[in-house]
Design a protein around this nucleic acid. Sequence first.
DNA 1: CTAAAAAAAGGACAATTGTCCCAACTAAAA
DNA 2: TTTTAGTTGGGACAATTGTCCTTTTTTTAG
Lengths: 185, 185
Amino acid sequence: MIRTGPEFLTYIEVLRHKYPQYFIIEKYGSNEVILSQQKRYHSLYCIKTGITKCYLSDENGKEFIQEFLGEGVNFGELEFFSGHLSFCSIKTITNVEVYKISYQYYDFLLENDAVFNRLVLKSMALKIGFKAPRHSFQHSYSIEENIIRLQKIAPNYAKIFSKNDIANYLGVTLRSLNRALLLLK
Amino acid sequence: MIRTGPEFLTYIEVLRHKYPQYFIIEKYGSNEVILSQQKRYHSLYCIKTGITKCYLSDENGKEFIQEFLGEGVNFGELEFFSGHLSFCSIKTITNVEVYKISYQYYDFLLENDAVFNRLVLKSMALKIGFKAPRHSFQHSYSIEENIIRLQKIAPNYAKIFSKNDIANYLGVTLRSLNRALLLLK
DNA sequence: CTAAAAAAAGGACAATTGTCCCAACTAAAA
DNA sequence: TTTTAGTTGGGACAATTGTCCTTTTTTTAG
């Protein structure tokens, strides 16, 4: 439920010794927007500690949560490659520390560090591989079954996330989520 | 609606002159499975001509179509990076020609051809960037609005795809799709 | 400490979508 | 040709989910 990338984070920590000025640590409290959709940025991020949500909001302001991001996950890197505006927003849930890396240094690392390059490729492959089965499952099964699945993956999910976030993650309304929770009791 | 990767395809054609033995052309008729989910492969593919669908099927055999793939799109590359089994199936819709590339040669190209490497990264970034807004839209709007959107993106969609495929692409039943089409007439 | 705001819970009804049918038509196979 | 299988279209009803609203509880801010 919360994506992580421990391998990537470990390697970032290694690289930071070699290129200390490439990695700027930023700290955020809870409920702060780090990146908002439809804007142009010149840096990307890797989460050092904490949890964020990645979401799209539609015209009515409803959030559609793509995934929850934990330690070692990158964000903002897609826009570097595609050249597009950011297509989702990132907001902190807990206190968060991130490494911020400029496009320029990122480009340098991709070209000159084969290990880093391969880790980026792998992390992107994993990102794609995670989404599809999740959306498929969410669609094929009832809300109750989805909640049961959440409880298995993350037994403490209710302590971390608000009901609203969970509903938006499952792609249902808060009312429907509450109904499903009632039936499970 | 049909993903393509012209830039990638062009570069493959270039590389093929330098490394002819790396790229094996395979031809398929319509409705053939090129890759099926939960299996291990040792090659990946790039579509030269034709259209395929990428889908997950659940226990009831219902297909959940992720996307339609056209010229220049890769598939089977995620498993190379993640080391996982294939997580979706690929079936041809029209006649299809693909370039087949072994993991071994792919690895070599990634390491030794910086342009190729960057194109792979870009194509993966685009893959991720496409899915999220689509699922978000599909979820936020009615079936009718989704059909109208399809017609704008691909006016000839009804000639290429069966009703069943369109329903599975939109994540609704055939019955619901028909109902929505009635209301639009 | 109190007021205001946000989060959580659920009632009542409406709208949407799914399930299970059946019928017509087309294409493919025997 | 005849049969079979697949595609398309839609009726009737059930189940699910959403919308709108109200109440209670919890959290936050002044």
